[in-house]
Design a protein around this nucleic acid. Structure first.
Length: 283
DNA sequence: GAACAGGTGAAGT
DNA sequence: ACTTCACCTGTT
């Protein structure tokens, strides 16, 4: 897998990415700030900046400079990992094989831990539309504004900013009983009691234990934060969709045997199960 | 209007 | 250890 990049007309063009599919990556439920635009590009905000991503033929285009690509987007989009090779090593029966085939091109984004924690606290018992609305509202109210393509966008607010809020100030977000969870998480991170960067460097199980201490963080949210926000590819979040997929997959699928990249298998299962449901098939 | 939606935590068996 | 229920809100 070789990747060739060059900068042209405000975009970075990357050739040779045979296993990166923007729609699958942005629609597989891991992120909430990427949206498909009328022109077919995906517009997103991450790391206090914004970009468009698109793929035409075999060329992936990411707006911005080569410098920005090399220092941020390349890692964020996890373009250096050979997903094709990983997929070849996943084994767990016919259902998982079909799911992996279906999800080929999906990448696990290397998102910010704090943003991921907040996003998945908000996600509980919620649908994607509302999750996205609440996250955007949170950013618009408390995040740092910046210009992108002449329009104002908002960075995800840092833990210090949120820690300074009262529950009343969060009320307009309409996130209901999740508001106190956000505040507690913000205070833990801003106060230094919870160091997400340090957790990312340590062992998955240890990081999980720490996350589970937060109110509103159970197994599902903790595993999503580990996988999407702390780079722990062995984390395996189980939600309603994955549960359904696992029922279909039967005993051939042994989660504990999936090992270091169990999380990738989880993403394939999630995307497959939900994709089938959306296209009207049985679960 | 009731039921439900990508969960959690407390309380009851 | 396993089951049931309330939790805030928006949508069907």
């Amino acid at each position: 897998m070789s990747m060739k990049c060059r900068e042209r007309d405000g975009w970075v063009e990357v050739a040779g990415l045979t296993d990166f599919d923007p729609p699958k990556t942005f629609e597989c439920g891991q992120c909430f700030r990427w949206n498909c635009q009328p022109d077919g590009s995906w517009l997103g905000v991450a790391g206090g900046r914004a970009a468009r991503v698109r793929k035409d033929g075999g060329i992936v285009r990411i707006s911005g400079t080569l410098e920005e690509f090399q220092t941020y987007w390349r890692e964020y989009l996890d373009l250096g990992r050979d997903y094709g090779a990983l997929r070849g090593r996943i084994s767990g029966g016919d259902y998982l094989a079909a799911a992996a085939e279906y999800g080929a091109g999906l990448h696990i984004l290397r998102q910010d831990g704090w943003e991921t924690l907040c996003s998945f606290l908000i996600s509980q018992c919620n649908n994607i539309t509302r999750i996205k609305r609440i996250v955007e509202s949170l950013c618009a109210r408390f995040g740092k504004p910046f210009l992108f393509e002449g329009e104002v966008r908002y960075a995800f607010p840092g833990p210090e900013r949120l820690a300074a809020c009262t529950e009343g100030e969060l009320a307009p977000l309409r996130c209901g009983y999740r508001a106190p969870y956000l505040l507690a998480a913000a205070r833990a991170v801003a106060g230094g009691g919870l160091d997400l960067d340090r957790l990312a460097e340590g062992e998955t199980g240890r990081a999980r234990e720490e996350l589970l201490k937060l109110p509103g963080v159970g197994n599902k949210v903790a595993d999503c934060v580990l996988l999407f926000g702390l780079g722990k590819t062995d984390a395996f979040p189980v939600d309603v969709w994955v549960r359904r997929a696992m029922n279909c997959a039967g005993e051939e699928l042994n989660v504990s045997a999936l090992g270091e990249y169990a999380g990738l298998a989880q993403q394939y299962l999630f995307y497959y199960a939900r994709g089938i449901a959306r296209s009207g098939g049985a679960e």
